[in-house]
């Protein structure tokens, strides 16, 4: 996967799965540490699995612990699916925009 960094806004592209989890973790954590508020744009995540969701949980917890804001935005269909399956939307607290066609 690729990680596009646009001033406080990260946009992982492709799959957020166990294959990319290690790489993502380092990059995303580093980005969080460097900033006071971070937005992760999930709009280009084509595929996500438990490892991916777990990583988002880690980041969100870490941000809360450090008193920073971490916003998850533009959830892709795959991300919404799994967030709903795990019933985590409330805990994440970010608005989910459910595409009209779903």
């Amino acid at each position: 996967m690729e990680l596009k960094n646009e001033s406080g806004r990260l946009c992982p592209e492709g799959e957020l799965t166990i294959y990319s989890a290690a790489e993502c973790k380092d990059a995303l954590l580093a980005a969080l540490e460097e900033s006071d508020g971070l937005e992760i744009d999930l709009g280009s995540v084509t595929e996500i699995d438990t490892a991916g969701v777990q990583l988002l949980i880690l980041l969100k917890s870490e941000a809360k612990r450090a008193g920073k804001t971490l916003t998850l935005s533009r959830h892709s269909a795959a991300v919404i699916d799994l967030t709903e399956l795990f019933n985590l939307a409330g805990w994440f607290g970010d608005p989910l925009v459910i595409p009209a066609e779903r």
Partner: peptide, 13 residues
């Protein structure tokens, strides 16, 4: 889930 730096993203917590 362990603290961020101890957490292995390939493991399941």
């Amino acid at each position: 889930m362990p603290p961020a730096h101890e957490m292995d993203p390939e493991e399941c917590y």
